[in-house]
Design a protein around this nucleic acid. Structure first.
Length: 233
DNA sequence: GCGACAG
DNA sequence: ATCTTGTCGC
């Protein structure tokens, strides 16, 4: 299903991790290269035992009605600290474990955090896209890097997130009257297409349904969300 | 040297 | 990320 995913890359010093990001940068594709998207997956991680254990959740939804059709959970000992810019080295190992368990791979991944809106263009969404080969989008609740002007108030409106002359993402108002989201291409997708797919996953909340399900399952209230998921079966 | 800094 | 219930406001 998925390519061989070595996990040895995870045990790196921050210095080596940065070097790895630099070397992977050339492989990132931000042109549309994705199938007709019928299924989308939300990907997120949470922590247990005072942070000693990392838990990952993946929830696959039908894009048509945003109904969950599959999900997986995984747990691993936490072995990399949180360092801004190196989030993927902390969360990828367990997320890949969860993705490996999926019966059917989704057409597109929506990951918590940034895609190319990253100092070295290698946010967690991009890294996961490269490792799995799947198209991916970064959905951040706050800004890591980049500058932007005022964000229009209307639902679906956005302003570019820039790093100098380069557009690295969009600051998107998913609903009027809420804080905007930071959307950026992960891998194999363009910014306009990424924005369209994120908005397609919005119902009545600020966060896309993919993120809501994955956040819920990865959080400490995961049991309640599990009940709801099982109830849908 | 002084801030900023996804989850 | 996480510690955590009710509550103020549109």
């Amino acid at each position: 299903m998925l390519p061989d995913l070595s996990t040895e890359w995870a045990d790196l010093t921050p210095k080596d991790a940065i070097a790895l990001q630099q070397s992977l940068r050339a492989q990132v594709r931000t042109e549309d290269d994705l199938p007709d998207v019928r299924t989308v997956a939300g990907v997120d991680a949470g922590f247990e035992d005072n942070g000693q254990t990392t838990r990952a959740a993946v929830v696959v939804l039908n894009l048509n009605d945003l109904t969950p059709i599959d999900y997986t959970l995984a747990r691993l000992p936490t072995r990399f600290p949180y360092v801004p810019g190196l989030l993927s080295f902390r969360e990828c190992p367990v997320i890949l474990e969860a993705l490996k368990q999926l019966e059917t791979l989704p057409d597109l991944l929506l990951c918590d955090g940034q895609g190319i809106a990253h100092p070295r263009r290698l946010g967690i969404a991009t890294h996961i896209g490269l490792l799995t080969g799947l198209p991916s989008i970064g959905v951040g609740k706050s800004r890591l890097t980049g500058t932007h002007g005022p964000v229009p108030e209307g639902k679906g409106e956005w302003t570019p997130l820039k790093d100098g002359d380069e557009t690295i993402g969009a600051v998107l108002r998913t609903r009027s009257g809420v804080k905007p989201l930071f959307i950026s291409p992960g891998h194999r997708i363009s910014l306009p297409t990424a924005i369209d797919h994120v908005m397609a996953c919005i119902t009545r909340y600020r966060l896309p349904e993919t993120t809501r399900w994955a956040d819920g399952l990865a959080s400490n209230r995961g049991q309640q969300w599990l009940k709801t998921l099982e109830g849908l079966k």
